[in-house]
């Protein structure tokens, strides 16, 4: 099988993540997740407090000031993927061992 370069793999993977968060997320189920559903049924959902960052421009995965639900959620998703990818990737890049990987060392 033809090998895919790491750069190409990461670029394609990021595009997939952007499409999932930016477009597909609109079609996600809006039912409460397992924990919130159980909290409601068992009777402690009301102990949950309003979120301290409810004032964030992207609170609740929607973009403040953008009326169109599809666009508002999609923008929030794209911002999230880029922020998480940059921070996560940057952290990994800072922590990495310089030079070759462990498998190359033994060659």
């Amino acid at each position: 099988m033809r090998s895919v370069s790491t750069r190409r793999l990461v670029v394609v993977g990021l595009l997939v993540a952007l499409v999932l968060a930016g477009v597909v997320s609109y079609y996600a189920s809006s039912h409460p997740d397992g924990l919130n559903y159980v909290a409601e049924k068992v009777g402690f959902l009301s102990t949950g407090r309003r979120h301290a960052t409810d004032g964030s421009p992207f609170a609740g995965y929607s973009t403040r000031g953008v009326g169109n639900a599809r666009l508002s959620g999609g923008l929030a998703g794209v911002v999230g993927v880029l922020v998480v990818g940059l921070v996560g990737g940057g952290l990994a890049w800072l922590l990495r061992r310089r030079g070759h990987g462990p498998s190359e060392d033994r060659r």
Partner: peptide
């Protein structure tokens, strides 16, 4: 983490974020 695997870590973080939006 090394030179080869570090880029994948950023992708994995981004992918997990995206997929967590998909209830």
């Amino acid at each position: 983490l090394d030179d080869r695997t570090a880029p994948l870590a950023g992708l994995v973080a981004a992918f997990v974020f995206a997929t967590q939006m998909l209830n």
